[in-house]
Nucleic acid binder design. Structure first.
Lengths: 150, 150
DNA sequence: GTGAAACAGTTCTACACGTGAACTATTATC
DNA sequence: GATAATAGTTCACGTGTAGAACTGTTTCAC
């Protein structure tokens, strides 16, 4: 282990805990009854993926497939998404947003922008850019070492 | 809103989602039956705070006090923490770890270090430092604008 | 001093999310 | 054509969250 790794990790975890929990709380508040944070994330992934499947979602959010089914069922009951079976491989179910889902998602996306953007004003542009690039590299590293079944 | 804010936020959210969910999944796996991620976080806060109260925890994790009671109850039943009433102000209940709680927490802390540290090797020291400093500033900003009751 | 307000914490009910194991239906393999 | 692999679902159970109602304690205003 790197010499300063322990201290870095402790500082990272402490800061990350505050930031993520505070952001989550703020999003929870503004989304209100419309959507939970997790549902927002799932819609976001569906929006960004052609022919999105449960398996893809499960890997993307690092969670079992049965959890995805539960979330998808609720979004389905709320009329926000549709399931479409692939006629060539009838095991696959593709998930797409309905017009209503799209509308709710876009609203929440705007609200998210409004909640987060004020914090950006406290930093210089190149600092923000560096921070995000670093975060993206981390994300890339972690995505390539996932894996899980069920 | 800043000109590039929207793009930054989208990139940030996408990366942050991957990183936090992947880290959570890995921690869930190694902690196993011993402790949930949230319980670990709560113990971490208790460890780092003299005379820790439910109210402090609720603010720190940006959650209602009733949620804290639930978590504390489970940790109490598991024999990991103790509640002590303040004799000067009998409304206050101070939370401390038992020896057993301390032991479980330290074990999980080590495991967390081992899970996260490999990723640090992919970055230069000063990059890591800058990243963490930025995160800490963000955390500081967010902490100063919280607030919630119940 | 006493009554009202504020505060710390708990309980209760309801729901969202997570797991893992067992299951259905479909496709691939040999 | 039997067997294995894959995609997704269902079920039972534990955890975390909210919010409202509650207890007990302290503070404050008069």
């Amino acid at each position: 282990m790197k010499k300063d790794a322990e201290e870095w990790i402790n500082r990272y975890v402490d800061a990350y805990m505050v930031v993520t929990r505070q952001i989550n709380a703020r999003l929870r508040d503004i989304f209100g009854e419309g959507l939970t944070n997790d549902q927002f994330l799932i819609l976001r992934l569906i929006a960004g993926q052609e022919q999105c499947t449960s398996t893809y979602l499960a890997e993307a959010v690092a969670v079992g497939k049965s959890s995805i089914t539960a979330i998808i069922n609720r979004l389905d009951e709320a009329g926000m998404i549709q399931r479409t079976r692939d006629e060539n491989d009838r095991r696959q179910v593709y998930l797409t947003m309905t017009a209503h889902g799209e509308s709710v998602y876009r609203t929440c996306e705007k609200q998210m922008q409004e909640v987060i953007s004020p914090y950006l004003f406290h930093f210089e542009d190149d600092k923000i850019e560096q921070f995000i690039v670093m975060f993206e590299k981390l994300a890339f590293l972690m995505q390539d070492t996932g894996g899980r079944s069920n």
